[in-house]
Design a protein around this nucleic acid. Structure first.
Length: 308
DNA sequence: TAGGCCATCTGGTCCT
DNA sequence: AGGACCAGATGGCCTA
């Protein structure tokens, strides 16, 4: 049996909203002892050293009345087979490393989106969705100069996310889950109808709140439009379609800081924006604007209130 | 048990 | 020729 050395990578994620612990990596499958016909076909080129072997075998087949239709398939010599197998093994290792790098990048992304938990990690797709919403929301703030309330900001972050992830984000932001639900029969949202100070784990998928739906997916868009001039990311899906970009595409570092996690009734939070190319805008009064040099090293710290 | 998520293998395609 | 990238297939683990 042929096995490859396996190095443990950081992508072995312990938790996500769907499970208590993610499975450990399955053992690398042994390379199949016999390469498939397709594999042989894919490597027909470069058979200098074993050309004679294939020709001789075909002649034997023809003599035996076994002439086949279609392109001639030449069997590979043992040396050629070994070489093909070796290349396949090397390609598999490269592919594993490539995927590990991709997962590491996703881990990095998880740490900068406003919901990071070491015990309940976002899935890949939810990480990407949340990141997209995060960029969108921050871009809207910068482009409009308006300061949305925290609830609307969270709603924007959670658009298109699964219910467990929505609960997780709500928990990270220490908002009660019910804050996401529009009041029945009314346009207004109840911001603090049933406030409880709970952490992400308490409001997560395992909590009792998760037994009832917060909302139907994609069921609301109004509050976003009320606060943002552009359509929300998931109402018209301008980002998904690729036709439009967020209103502002700064080459900067965003960090959102919830200033008062213990008492969010004041709905205070500040946005710290760092950029090389964009100077502070005078229009964005309510937010703390700092140059990259000042705050970039403490970006993790800025996001800490969102992280568990 | 079904569904979600994951890692890995695999073959095809494109690029250098 | 070889590597990077991609997508499909597969099987394992976990939760509802």
């Amino acid at each position: 049996m042929l096995t490859l050395p396996f190095e443990e990578a950081s992508c072995n994620l312990p938790d996500n909203p769907y499970r208590a612990s993610w499975p450990s990596k399955p053992p690398i499958k042994p390379v199949k002892p016999e390469p498939s016909t397709a594999l042989e076909d894919a490597h027909e080129c470069g058979r200098e050293d074993d050309e004679r072997d294939g020709e001789e075998e075909e002649e034997e087949e023809e003599e035996a009345g076994m002439r086949r239709r279609g392109p001639r398939k030449r069997k590979l010599s043992q040396a050629r087979l070994d070489r093909v197998r070796l290349r396949r093994i090397e390609a598999n290792a490269r592919e594993r490393n490539r995927m590990h790098g991709l997962n590491n990048a996703l881990d990095s992304l998880r740490k900068v989106v406003p919901c990071y938990s070491k015990t309940q990690k976002l899935s890949k797709i939810e990480t990407l969705r949340l990141a997209k919403n995060y960029i969108w929301a921050l871009s809207e703030i910068l482009s409009t100069g308006k300061r949305p309330d925290l609830l609307s900001f969270v709603q924007t972050l959670c658009k298109g996310l699964s219910q467990p992830t929505t609960n997780l984000v709500a928990g990270c932001l220490q908002l009660n889950a019910r804050s996401f639900i529009p009041e029945p029969g009314g346009e207004s949202f109840s911001l603090y109808p049933a406030y409880h100070h709970r952490g992400a784990e308490a409001v997560g998928s395992n909590s009792s709140d998760s037994s009832r739906p917060l909302r139907a997916y994609g069921s609301y868009c109004g509050p976003y439009e009320a606060l943002y001039e552009s359509p929300s990311p998931d109402c018209s899906s301008p980002l998904d379609g690729g036709a439009l970009s967020p209103p502002i595409n700064f080459n900067g570092i965003f960090s959102l800081k919830h200033e008062e996690p213990a008492d969010y009734r004041s709905c205070h939070y500040s946005l710290r924006y760092c950029s090389l190319s964009q100077g502070p805008s005078a229009d964005i009064g309510p937010y703390d604007i700092h140059l990259r040099g000042q705050f970039y090293p403490v970006q993790d710290e800025l996001n800490t209130p969102f992280h568990n």
